[in-house]
Write a protein that binds this DNA or RNA. Structure first.
Lengths: 362, 362
DNA sequence: TTGTAAGCGTTATCAG
DNA sequence: CTGATAACGCTTACAA
């Protein structure tokens, strides 16, 4: 029993240091050949039995013998070898901007769950400190069967980087690749409706300057709905800042400094909203008494702040899950045709940061 | 230009639907053989030139020819094939309980960063809805060169599942594998010192019932320091709950219901602390006026709540990064011997949720 | 029903 | 210095 021997070896050493098991002790992985030898058949027969090939017509007896041998030896087919032979890697890449944003962590989580179910591995690629292009090159070198890209601006990437890849986009429409998206336009609309129905007329929006489709749509949905209701946004009420807590804080400070301070603010995402909330707390501005704040995403933390954040829930895990499923379908798909699904519905979560507009200002 | 053709094809279709490029249009990846043909050399020569093998003594002229051909063709070596030949996959697995916890997201982020630097891919394995054992089987099938395991209780796993793997543990000591850890004992100690120095004598701890080493140590460090200072914890002041926001909320409610309510609480992690903070807010208990709260981890959100959370910062990304580096060293290591590093220092972040003990109770 | 042979894209060990 | 040749572990015709 190798593990035990290794443990004994290590136990005899000082606690803080580790002595690895000598090479001779780590057993070479079991191969199909080993199984074949033990079962008394040829190696390809093993492959036929174990790879579930429907064309294989083998005697039940051989089947059983092979399976037993495999079990006894603890045989695991080498996926890389299989991939080489079949021309597929059974691996998916997922490219996200930043795992520190719980939204993307959720997307990754959802994607990995489905991928695992479908027999794919998920290669993590975070564009936080490594260039997307480097990641893409690495994924290409690994011949991943497909890539999920979320909010990394796939359209802005050098087309060559993506050439030949099977891509599914999250929250970014494209004529070139299929994708899944949330109803970003609807999110903005719902936020506007909510604030309007509470009597707010002096409104503001904060979002990033960069051209990320989802953010743009949320903004459009918001401003469009306001316009339709005869409410206009002054340019100062349209704050540009990074889509982070810090950005939200900055933006809110600017809004609070306006001569005619807005009473209702829609933030492009929850991180910004949390920053905004914080800026209000710092400035001693009552929420929702003086200012109502609406976020977007519904990350878990939205419910931990006090008051709890009113926000629009975006099904992050579901987005990731669907993207992975879509890729999987497209890959083992006999019918290679994949339809881009309708935008996933978003839902308003009315919580503690939104309330009636202050009467003296309504 | 394939991409353009594909785009044109798709453009002619309805917006919501996607028509994939016919197989004939997606180019077979270029192989070393293609490069060899174009450079007028044998295929193995290409390998020699491009794989940076130091033993290779080739004429500079051939070298140049091969490199040029490779560049012109956009050649990328197939990592799976290389892995097959070299008996390594150049892939690392990372097994974490839950990406929804920003702490683990950070660990993964750090690990992926250095793995990318070192030329390894990172296979994501989240034990949230998939059994660790399934993940480990999958990683074995892929012949990953190593695995990073964080807080999944590696010691409790069936040893066979891990047999033969190169493992680095995060925050879990083991005689069997090397690992990196934060100074969990120190974290508890620092928390205790902080609260004691603020005059608190009626103290409490909340943490999970499950036997996760880090949490245990934080607890031990805390209670041990208190004991040394002559302060004892009543059993009711030792709350067991899940290490989540919800768990923290429950635990805090229980603490607030005590006849002699504690004035200072140390929470096993920030999520619990945030829950505790929230429970206080709900119950109208002033923080830090009536109760001081200290968390652990210093997740980003610790600074978004009001008042900001006093907590012990654990270098999550650094833990992930070191684990990956350690694995990498151990793998391409000529000197296969790897030392488990000393625990990473933790640092107290005094913020808004801790203050002097109320005078009437001190 | 099963074994043989060829090949997937590399690397590594040899002769030439 | 360079080019065959044989692995690596598996799949898939094609024979037997």
């Amino acid at each position: 029993m190798v593990p035990t021997r290794a443990a004994t070896l290590a136990n005899s050493c000082a606690n803080t240091y580790y002595h690895p098991v000598p090479d001779s002790l780590v057993p070479r992985p079991v191969t199909a050949r080993d199984v074949a030898a033990r079962a008394g058949v040829s190696q390809p027969t093993v492959s036929l039995v174990l790879s579930g090939n429907p064309t294989a017509r083998l005697s039940p007896e051989t089947r059983a013998r092979v399976k037993r041998a495999a079990r006894e030896l603890g045989y695991r087919p080498n996926v890389a070898a299989r991939g080489l032979a079949r021309g597929r890697s059974y691996a998916l890449g997922i490219l996200v901007p930043d795992l520190g944003n719980p939204f993307f962590a959720d997307v990754a989580s959802g994607a990995q769950r489905v991928a695992a179910e479908e027999g794919y591995a998920v290669l993590l690629a975070e564009a936080r400190e490594v260039e997307p292009s480097r990641h893409l090159e690495a994924l290409r070198a690994r011949r991943v069967d497909g890539i999920i890209i979320d909010a990394v601006g796939a359209s802005d990437l050098d087309p060559d980087l993506l050439a030949g890849f099977n891509v599914v986009l999250i929250d970014e429409p494209s004529t070139r690749w299929p994708g899944v998206a949330s109803d970003a336009l609807g999110a903005g609309r719902v936020a506007a409706d909510h604030l309007l129905s509470l009597g707010h007329r002096r409104l503001a929006f904060m979002g990033p300057a960069i051209d990320v489709h989802t953010f743009r749509q949320r903004e459009r949905g918001f401003t469009g709905t306001l316009r339709a209701a005869g409410v206009t946004l002054s340019s100062a009420a349209l704050q540009r800042a990074r889509p982070t807590v810090g950005g939200g804080q900055d933006a809110m400070r600017a809004l609070l400094a306006m001569p005619e301070r807005p009473t209702g603010v829609f933030c492009a995402n929850d991180l910004m909203a949390l920053g905004a909330l914080k800026a209000c707390a710092r400035a001693g501005v009552a929420v929702p008494g003086a200012v109502s704040i609406v976020g977007c995403d519904d990350v878990e933390l939205a419910r931990v702040v006090t008051p709890e954040l009113t926000t629009i829930a975006i099904p992050a895990r579901e987005l990731g899950a669907r993207a992975a499923r879509m890729l999987a379908r497209q890959l083992d798909g006999t019918g290679k045709r994949v339809a881009g699904s309708r935008p996933l519905p978003v839902t308003l979560k009315v919580r503690g940061t939104s309330g009636p507009a202050p009467k003296d200002l309504a």
